[in-house]
Computed example of a mutant assay.
Amino acid sequence: MVRTPLTPEERERGEQLGRLLRAARGERSMTEVAAVAGVSAETLRKIETGRAPTPAFFTVAALAGALGLSMDDLVGRCEPAAAA
């Protein structure tokens, strides 16, 4: 199966999500937050660096819960600049 290339807006949204998660993680280690969320540290690293710009919903929900973020807030803050 061939995956459709991501649009610039999808890439921007993924990068914004990564920045938000990294900021929310603060001084906590990637390993600690990933363990609480039930995902691998490598998955969290890829999301934070924008290498995984479209993570699964349940992965984002688990990370949001581990970081004390609301999904509504994440959605609102990950709007592409053109849409805001």
Rank of each mutant, 00 (worst) to 15 (best):
A52S: 15
V36G: 06
T43I: 06
G50W: 00
L21Q: 05
A23R: 13
R45Q: 14
C78R: 09
A37I: 01
L69M: 12
E12P: 02
L69D: 10
T4A: 14
L20S: 08
V36T: 13
R13M: 09
R51Y: 12
S70L: 10
R77V: 05
E9L: 13
L69N: 09
G68D: 11
D73V: 10
G38K: 04
R45Y: 11
T43K: 03
D72A: 14
R3C: 09
G76F: 06
F57N: 12
E27R: 13
A81W: 09
V75R: 08
A56E: 15
A35N: 06
G38S: 07
P5A: 08
D73R: 15
L63D: 02
A34F: 01
R11Y: 13
A37D: 01
S40K: 00
T31Y: 13
E48P: 01
A83K: 12
T7N: 07
L74Q: 11
P53V: 04
R25Q: 05
G65H: 07
Q16I: 13
R51E: 13
M71I: 15
A41W: 00
A37P: 00
E42H: 13
A61G: 07
E10C: 07
T31R: 14
Q16K: 15
A34H: 01
V33N: 02
R22L: 05
M1A: 09
A56V: 10
A23L: 10
A62V: 00
G26H: 10
R19L: 09
A83R: 12
G50P: 00
E48R: 01
A34V: 02
A34G: 01
G18T: 01
T59P: 02
M30Q: 13
L17P: 01
V60F: 08
D72C: 10
A52E: 14
A66Q: 01
T43D: 06
S40Q: 05
M71H: 14
L44I: 03
Q16E: 13
R51G: 10
D73A: 14
M71N: 09
G26P: 06
L20P: 00
A35M: 04
V39M: 04
L44V: 00
P8R: 14
R11C: 09
L20N: 08
L21E: 06
R22G: 07
A41L: 05
A62C: 03
A23K: 12
V39I: 05
A37K: 02
G50D: 02
A66M: 05
D73Y: 15
T31S: 08
G38N: 06
L21F: 04
A64I: 03
M30R: 13
D72Y: 14
F57E: 15
